[in-house]
């Protein structure tokens, strides 16, 4: 099926990826511009980076953003995993339709509405606005993303594995810890990463629910670029783009290695099914099989 690409396809790929990446490349190049006029090149300089790293306001905002992102993505991962478990494993409980509606709705709800509604709630109950309210708001919408990611993983794995563990004398918590959790772990981790990025990225909801004392990085960036291009923001953007790129590259390398390792294990398992120690715990064996299935599936996909 590997036919050579037609000229039309090569052109669309080239133009498409140029369109996606050129603006960011220009942004990065101009962050090293010595001139304050961002569009006139006046030689190489790193002075905007130096200035940025001495800007107390930016450093404070970065710190607030990081705190919010870590707290809210951790909370969201716990709540979202619970919600996914409830949706997939418990087919009947009172108000299930409302529950699944509430899990899906925030995914399509415009940010302005989520932000406004939460602010009105916080005012109604007299909660002081600041880092805490931003964490509550981010957790609420991020847990829905986690629930979706984790529930798709939960649906695809065999419930009888859990039942087997229970039959073999595991307590429900042990069964969850040693059977379910290892299998859904990749989805839980990507759910955490997704919530983390969503929290780092959010301008609109944070602007509604924040108080006067806590400014997040997106709020700070927005207020300084509203009036035009600003070289310090170019430097900040370059740092952020760099961090994300490194993060994504590392994540994809790690997942490729994991798949390769699983394929190796699969090969060994196929070569030596008899010599497999018979004493190995049943649960472990079952999990390994499931993982191999998975590696096969992802191998087929890749």
């Amino acid at each position: 099926m590997n036919r050579p690409l037609s000229w039309f396809n090569i052109t669309s790929l080239t133009l498409g990826f140029t369109f996606l990446y050129l603006p960011m490349v220009i942004l990065i190049i101009y962050s090293f511009n010595a001139s304050k006029l961002v569009t006139v090149w006046a030689g190489f300089s790193t002075k905007w980076y130096v200035r940025l790293l001495h800007d107390e306001q930016f450093l404070d905002a970065a710190w607030v953003t990081l705190k919010v992102a870590v707290c809210s993505s951790t909370l969201a991962t716990i709540l979202g995993t619970m919600a996914a478990y409830a949706l997939v494993r418990m087919r009947r409980f009172p108000g299930r339709t409302l529950f699944s509606g509430m899990v899906y709705a925030p995914l399509v709800m415009p940010d302005v509405i989520i932000g406004l509604s939460l602010l009105l709630l916080f005012i109604a109950i007299g909660l002081d606005r600041g880092v805490f309210t931003i964490v509550l708001a981010h957790t609420t919408f991020a847990m829905c993303y986690v629930a979706i990611v984790v529930s798709s993983r939960l649906t695809s794995f065999d419930e009888s594995l859990e039942e087997a563990a229970l039959d073999l004398g595991c307590t429900p918590f042990d069964a969850f810890k040693s059977v379910t959790l290892p299998i859904i772990a990749p989805a839980v981790i990507s759910g955490w990463l997704l919530s983390f990025t969503l929290s780092l990225d959010d301008l609109v909801i944070a602007s509604f629910v924040t108080g006067p004392s806590s400014t997040t990085l997106p709020i700070k960036i927005f207020s300084s670029i509203r009036l035009g291009v600003n070289p310090e923001i170019n430097a900040l953007s370059t740092i952020m783009i760099g961090l994300v790129t490194v993060g994504v590259l590392v994540a994809s390398l790690v997942s490729r290695n994991t798949i390769a390792k699983r394929e190796r294990e699969e090969l060994e398992a196929n070569l030596a099914p008899v010599t497999e120690p018979a004493m190995a715990s049943v649960t472990e064996g079952v999990v390994r099989d499931e993982e191999i299935e998975d590696a096969r599936a992802s191998g087929a996909r890749g």
Binding site: P23, M24, I26, P218, I221, I225, S237, I241
Partner: peptide
């Protein structure tokens, strides 16, 4: 990457 930065670029 940040939505805000992509618009800003």
């Amino acid at each position: 990457t940040s939505f805000l930065i992509r618009v800003y670029s």
